[in-house]
Design a protein around this nucleic acid. Structure first.
Lengths: 219, 219
DNA sequence: ATTTAGCTGACACCAAGCTGAACGGCAGGG
DNA sequence: CCCTGCCGTTCAGCTTGGTGTCAGCTAAAT
């Protein structure tokens, strides 16, 4: 997860940055709003941590501008514990969350993970998927007995399900991801792959909804 | 928005309840976990406010049980300000948010609205019917005992009723949705499916209006 | 009490889906 | 160049479970 940290205090900033990195995320540290604006313009972030007391402008205005441009990137505000009205203003300006300074680093990571979970659209973290740890970028899955490797086609199908957790994915939708739009495969290829997926990942990972398609299991 | 408030302190409880009502939401106050369990089993909530220090059990266990049953109802935890580990535990147990006691009532409503905003952008809108959470897009229903699956025909009939809440839907109207206009079904198929629906979803979900048709129940 | 509408358990049928096996293509290595 | 292993695909036979029908029942209306 790529995280933008907007914080002018060098000590706190680097501490948080290191903590984020230690959690396996990718942190960018911006000490000023101007710098943050540059980064936001050139890079897509999964989460923005925003300190409100910055030297070159009001953090809330930055947030409002961001939302005004239609960005839906989740924003978590860092604020001192006695600035209650500021927190309320922030939430009303479109922040998704806040955390009170000084905060425990463990608490920060818990909240970051909560935001990630919330925004993946998945109420349960992927780790809870039958004891599987899934690294989408690396195409790697960690199961109880070590690493599980999937072939290319198997990944495409599994990914199609992961992208829409809780929703039903029809066979034709999966076909669209597997093949060029023209190609029509009139066979049970997808059923075969689902069968192989279940053999590798466990029976409950993929649910069949008869006549409609498949859905990620919730074990 | 229907909100369940689980809080044993009478003073705080009624104050928060009144505040929620003043905001135009519908509050239910549960002073114990046992009572809360009853309410959750019979009613679908849009948000649950959960106090962790309750007389009859650990609030976190309640939360875990709820998530274990597949409920996606957002839960906000009420906690004392010095219980940091409890807050982290709560977030990891599936809570969506917490608020620190003592809190400003204005702050509470701001956070409630934040949760509402967050969930209004949900991939799938949920329909609340009694103790059921209905996800039309995913063809999924969450009941008190977890997920309930319906077959295609069962869905069509249930949908026909959901589309006209409070109205009477005649058998011929349902037939029109089930079959091509020409096809004639000369049997009690629809009655059979209504029976199956009631078995899966509860007796009161479908009401019979003798001689006219069926209507969605409000259990 | 009689009639009528609706309910529900049981059952047979069949389409949807599952899975073991086999085949052909392709890449890498001997 | 052939061998070998992997991957994608196809096929065939099997299993599963949705569907519609009926029979006998219950409950409401008159």
């Amino acid at each position: 997860m790529r995280i933008l940290l907007i914080e002018d205090d060098p000590g706190l900033g680097s501490a948080v940055r290191d903590q984020i990195a230690a959690e396996g995320h990718v942190p960018d540290l911006a000490p000023t709003l101007a710098y943050a604006r540059d980064l936001v313009a050139t890079m897509a972030y999964d989460l923005i941590l925003l300190d409100l007391g910055l030297p070159d402008g009001r953090g809330l205005d930055f947030l409002k501008a961001l939302r005004g441009k239609g960005s839906v990137t989740p924003v978590m505000i860092l604020t001192a514990h006695d600035r209650i009205t500021e927190r309320i203003e922030g939430l009303n300006a479109g922040a998704d969350d806040y955390i009170v300074k000084p905060f425990d680093l463990a608490e920060l990571t818990a909240r970051i993970n909560a935001v990630a979970r919330r925004y993946s659209g998945n109420p349960n973290p992927l780790i809870a998927l039958g004891g599987l740890e899934i690294d989408l970028a690396a195409h790697a899955i960690h199961g109880p007995d070590g690493q599980i490797d999937l072939s290319q086609r198997e990944w495409v199908i599994f990914e199609a399900l992961l992208q829409r957790p809780g929703q039903i994915v029809s066979k034709s939708q999966i076909e669209d991801q597997l093949y060029s739009f023209d190609a029509e495969v009139e066979s049970n290829t997808i059923e075969v792959y689902v069968s192989r997926l279940r053999k590798k990942l466990g029976k409950d990972v993929v649910q069949t909804i008869r006549g409609l398609g498949y859905r990620l299991g919730t074990p």
